[in-house]
Amino acid sequence: MSRSEPLLCIEDLVIKFKVRGQTIEVIRGLSLKLYRGESLAIVGESGAGKSVLAKALIGALDKNGWIDSGRIIYEGMDIAKFQAEDDWLKIRGREIAMVFQEPMTALNPLKTIGNQVEEAIVLHEGYRGRDARERAIKVLENAGIEDARKLYKKYPHELSGGMRQRVVIAAALACRPKILICDEPTTALDVTIQAQILKLLNRLQEEYKLTILFISHDLGVVAKVADRVAVMYCGKIVEAGSVKEIFYNPRDPYTISLLSKLPYI
């Protein structure tokens, strides 16, 4: 794990939205560093800018939002300046992939799950036809879906929530990204499945040498998955440090209040 050079560096990012004629600042000068091979969790209350931040990193901001100022440096490029689709196509999937919160809506209900994973493989690895299918099955198996061959032709609504989330993860990994952003991936799942998915993510991180950006409002989940934690409040990062530091020695008043809401610790 090389710690010297950050893989992704966000500097003073400001993101604004236009809602009903008014302009609101959702991200207000956010700075963050993501190092290669680590698992960084961003925590904060629901409804704040966490998802917005994630979307900004793959250029999926809603139409009424934009990056007002600041930089996002990745591999020498400032992707905050990206406007054209062609630019983003270099990043999406290939470099940065994303796992969404709601597995049901993240998958196309009219296409088989195999098809949706295969799509990513055809796109990024250049395989076609049967080769693509075999690789898709492998990726699905790797994501913990044992009967991948049988389930290949199934539709999303035929699978359970946990399985669907595995499919989404498989599709994301099929792109072989360097960074995997997980936007509250376990929030919609029940607790037992949650644990499985988190274990899966840990394993995959090792196997694929991923750098994970994990977004959650659940500190318990964060404790299981993260190396470092960044606490987000009002569109800014108020404190960042290793899991130990944050949990046992918090310094920022907001972090302290957040931790105090936990039933244990």
Binding site: A60, M98, N108, A171, C175
Partner: peptide, 11 residues
């Protein structure tokens, strides 16, 4: 969402 996912995949 699935449209966003598809675009996130790089389509």
């Amino acid at each position: 969402d699935y449209v966003k996912l598809a675009m996130a995949k790089g389509l």
